[in-house]
Amino acid sequence: MGLLEGKVVLVTGAAGGIGRECALIAAAQGAKVVVNDLGGSVKGGDAGDASAAQKTVDEIKKAGGEAVANSDSVSMKSGAENMIAQALDTFGGLHSIISPAGILRDGMFHKMPDEDWDAVLEVHLKGSYNITRAAINHFREKEEGNFVLFTSTSGLIGNIGQANYAAAKMGIAGLSRIIAMEGAAKNVRSNIIAPFAWTRMIATIPVKDETSAKRVERMKNAMRAEQVGNFAVALAAPSCTANGQIFAVRGNELVLFSQPRPVKSVARIDGWTPETILSHAFPAMEGGYTDLGATGAVFTWEPV
């Protein structure tokens, strides 16, 4: 008996990378899987290829599992609704959604075209909204269901050239938190993962210096998609109790992130003026400021 025996799982972006591994592992753990992938490019905006998802389905069936392909776009409300309907029509239920589907359109913020901002938020943030909104009432009615959504250290910590991606990924963190809070009484859970893994999306990030080249090489060798897939499937398991949490998977290292809470506060009985804020409040708080270091400045140790 697998961890997901008798369950139905929808995995988005499952033609390759993390999504594919999530689908394969979920099936190996006994789930019936709806394999979604538009089949488009990393940048999105193209027509896609309906056969992309089918390749993962064929792998699952070859291994003795049950799966069906779906090529709708998470960025479309109707597409998300079709995925949920397909799960219910084909397998008679839906218990978990694992949704790593995404695109990248990197660029410095002061040069970013509106269409690149819109496209990334449409797929990541609106896509996460569409897929959770389409399933939430089914989960609440059955009093069983969970979401495994995907954030990024680009949002949680920051990364130059990814303002659109970071904004979307931080939005997903807020979305997941509220779904978890509102769903707790109905046995509906939502958690998010910030993955470290070599995927075709990561492969598009330019390597501009030796430090970047070394980081990329580490990711290729030590941080793999199946490691993220194993964790995502564990979060989807009925025996998992985590809810409203932010995790990272970095090779064989699993990370629980803190969430925003007050760091320091200062008070003044007679109130503040702009002058006293500058002369007293800021100096008192600056020891608690978060620096502007990117992910590499936070995760300074080698992956396990």
Rank of each mutant, 00 (worst) to 15 (best):
M1A: 10
M1G: 02
L4A: 00
G6E: 01
V11E: 06
T12K: 02
G13E: 07
R20L: 04
E21D: 13
A23N: 03
I25R: 04
A26L: 02
A27L: 03
Q29R: 01
G30W: 07
D37P: 03
D37K: 03
G39N: 01
G39L: 01
V42H: 03
G44E: 02
G45K: 12
A53P: 06
A53I: 08
K55H: 12
T56L: 12
E59I: 10
G65T: 11
A67P: 14
S73F: 06
S75P: 01
S75F: 02
K77W: 07
G79M: 10
E81Y: 03
E81D: 14
N82G: 13
M83F: 11
L88W: 04
L88D: 08
F91K: 07
G92S: 12
H95K: 06
S96V: 02
G102I: 08
I103Q: 10
K111G: 07
M112K: 13
D114A: 14
D118C: 05
A119L: 13
V120H: 09
K126Q: 05
N130Y: 10
I131D: 08
R133C: 09
K142Y: 04
K142M: 10
E143L: 05
V148W: 07
V148P: 08
T153I: 14
S154Y: 08
I157N: 04
I157M: 03
G158K: 12
G161F: 06
Y165D: 09
K169I: 03
R177C: 04
I179P: 08
A180C: 08
A180I: 07
M181H: 10
G183R: 03
V188T: 09
I193H: 10
A194C: 15
P195D: 06
F196I: 05
W198D: 09
R200W: 01
I202F: 09
A203M: 04
T204A: 15
I205Q: 07
P206H: 14
P206F: 13
D209C: 04
E210N: 02
A213N: 02
A213K: 15
E217Y: 05
A222N: 11
M223Y: 02
F231C: 06
F231Y: 14
V233L: 09
L235E: 05
L235T: 06
A242D: 14
G244A: 07
G251N: 02
G251C: 01
L254G: 03
L254T: 11
V255R: 00
V255Y: 06
S265K: 01
V266Y: 09
A267Q: 03
I269T: 14
D270T: 13
W272T: 05
T276N: 15
T276S: 15
I277A: 04
L278K: 02
S279K: 15
F282Y: 13
A284H: 04
E286F: 13
G288M: 01
T290C: 05
G293M: 02
T295D: 04
V298K: 13
P303H: 02
